[in-house]
């Protein structure tokens, strides 16, 4: 499973790093920074939770 954030869509709501702190962090502006491009085993649910709660649809998940 792979995760990427579209920096042109992210507006810094911070829902991802509030809800799934092991998968997502914040840059100095408070915008999303993906901690693991390749999702480590066991963090799949966190990866999806962050993506599902993004009000800007900025987080893309590749389930393969």
């Amino acid at each position: 499973m792979k995760v990427r954030v579209d920096g042109t869509k992210c507006e810094g709501h911070g829902r991802c790093y509030d809800l799934a702190p092991e998968m997502y962090g914040e840059d100095e502006r408070g915008h999303c920074r993906v901690k693991h491009e390749h999702v480590p085993e066991g963090l799949e649910a966190q990866a999806r939770l962050g993506a599902e709660n993004c009000p800007e649809d900025a987080i893309e998940i590749d389930e393969d």
Partner: peptide, 22 residues
């Protein structure tokens, strides 16, 4: 589980103070 509310708006004008408010 999924709550993409827009009480702080969305897009480029997303409330600047949203983290402080929360």
């Amino acid at each position: 589980e999924r709550n993409r509310h827009i009480a702080f708006g969305a897009g480029p004008h997303r409330c600047l103070g949203s983290h402080l408010a929360r």
